[in-house]
């Protein structure tokens, strides 16, 4: 595991993502390090003091991993949480009701009936942060429909890719790890 400063193109990718999720002003001066293990890269938010202290160390974990860097920036669950708290919502945020919240936290997809708020100009196949009614991030998903079709009844309109309950399932050991490996996916 290696932590290093972001290359110029990586910083550009991070900045574009911050703008997309509505947190550029809040985080434009923030420090990031890149966590790299040969197969994957993550952008980790750090404090300036931590950025300085970590030079010369070989930490296993450093700061808060807010996004996976591949061809595009994909927010991690903790990144989604931070962005939702700092932005207060925006085009790429989809809010769901109370019942759907519980189901998303079990990794289930979002039915159009459950969507309480989605931008009218949201496109199909967009990466979105799924929030509860309080605006707190509960998942990261991908839209299956655009605009007004996001709230259509009887259809899954957002595929849940990550959810805030996953950490608990993974942390709790073998039994819950087994659950998280299950390919079964139900509708919410």
């Amino acid at each position: 595991m290696m932590h290093r400063n972001p290359a110029r193109d990586e910083r550009t990718m991070i900045n574009r993502a911050l703008a997309l999720w509505g947190v550029f002003d809040a985080l434009k001066d923030a420090a990031f390090v890149i966590r790299e293990d040969g197969k994957s890269r993550q952008a980790c938010l750090v404090t300036p003091e931590l950025e300085a202290a970590v030079a010369g160390l070989e930490p296993l974990y450093c700061g808060l991993a807010v996004g996976d860097l591949a061809k595009h920036f994909s927010p991690t669950m903790e990144g989604a949480d931070l962005f939702a708290r700092l932005s207060g919502g925006g085009k790429y945020y989809v809010a769901v009701g109370e019942n759907a919240e519980k189901l998303v936290l079990y990794g289930r997809d979002v039915m159009g009936d459950s969507v309480t708020n989605a931008a009218s100009d949201i496109g199909e196949n967009e990466l979105v942060i799924i929030t509860n009614r309080a605006g707190e991030a509960i998942g990261v998903g991908r839209t299956r429909f655009a605009g007004k079709l996001m709230t259509q009844k009887g259809k899954i309109t957002v595929t849940t890719l990550k959810d805030a309950g996953r950490y608990l399932r993974e942390e709790d050991g073998e039994r819950q790890a087994k659950m998280s490996r299950s390919p079964r996916r139900r509708r919410s």
């Binding site: 938010l45 931590l50 808060l64």
Partner: peptide, 17 residues
Amino acid sequence: SMSFNLARLGVFNTCVC
């Protein structure tokens, strides 16, 4: 296991060695 807790609680001023 500790890293899960740091992440869940939104801590970004810490590194684990």
